[in-house]
């Protein structure tokens, strides 16, 4: 058997859900293992390594499903989704849709959103941080309703019908001792990178709408109109609080006022 044929056959045997026939692979087992046992070392390592990678990314989903449920889902996912990347931390992109459709998620309608949030959060962790705008740039906002605010690249918005942030925060808690959140409380979140640390903040419906408009590169005046559209009570105090959130979290990368050329 040539090198490529051998590698293809062995790789298929390692990835196969059911124990394959190892007799045609020309294996000499090590130790006191038989050929199936020697192959099993690599088969077990394959699922263990990918399960570990999924567990690191989807820590809260693991917490919610428990060991047995999470490992069952992982096994099925791994056998149906071979890793094609060299980097294990990017394994699992379609996991959110997959886990939401599994029987282990019955009665847990938030699991898909939770997994999607965790996937986006790990991507944020690895993303380059943007440089937050400093005081001289921020002061351009004063009295400039037609300003454009550029939101930094290390930011994402997340909206769910479920209390994703509250559930996500439980992942470090003891399974036997935690306060159960109201999972049906809708969540509107902004996740961002501050320096090398990632953080999450809950936003009001109006703030979420305004920030979304800014991230769509719409001018500040339109963003504030979006906020008022979803919450007519979004008044001057609310606007000031919104700007405080943007500035204190370092979400603003740049400010451009009317007449100033785009960078």
């Amino acid at each position: 058997m040539g090198l490529q044929a051998l590698q293809d056959a062995l790789a298929r045997a390692i990835r196969a859900p059911e124990r394959p026939d190892s007799s045609s692979l020309g294996i000499r087992p090590g130790g006191t293992l038989d050929a199936d046992g020697a192959l099993g070392v690599y088969r077990d390592g394959y699922t263990a390594r990918l399960t570990e990678a999924l567990g690191e990314t989807f820590e809260a989903v693991w917490w919610v499903l428990g060991d047995e449920g999470f490992f069952s889902v992982c096994r099925r996912y791994i056998y149906s989704h071979p890793s094609r990347e060299t980097n294990l931390s990017v394994y699992g992109e379609p996991f959110a849709a997959f886990v939401a459709a599994q029987p282990e998620a019955d009665g847990l309608p938030f699991v898909g959103d939770l997994a999607l949030f965790e996937w986006k959060f790990q991507a944020l962790f690895h993303a380059p941080a943007h440089q937050p705008a400093g005081e001289p740039v921020l002061t351009k906002l004063t009295g400039a309703p037609d300003a454009w605010i550029s939101i930094g690249s290390a930011v994402f918005l997340f909206e769910s019908l479920y209390a994703i942030h509250e559930i996500w925060k439980l992942r470090k808690q003891n399974q036997d001792d935690y306060e159960r959140p109201d999972v049906d409380a809708a969540a509107r979140l902004v996740a961002f990178k501050a320096g090398t640390e990632c953080a999450v903040r809950a936003l009001s419906h109006a703030e979420f709408a305004a920030l979304g408009a800014l991230m769509d590169e719409r001018p500040l005046s339109e963003a504030l109109e979006c906020a008022i559209e979803v919450d007519p009570g979004f008044d001057a105090d609310a606007v000031a609080s919104f700007f405080h959130t943007l500035a204190s979290a370092g979400l603003i990368a740049d400010v451009r006022v009317a007449g100033e050329p785009a960078r």
Partner: peptide, 25 residues
């Protein structure tokens, strides 16, 4: 070693057959 094929990555350090073909490659 080899860690996978075009069909997928095994993420393990798989042993090489000690053959002339493998050596040349």
């Amino acid at each position: 070693c080899w860690t996978g094929t075009r069909e997928g990555n095994i993420h393990d350090l798989l042993p090489v057959p000690f053959t002339d073909e493998a050596l040349t490659w």
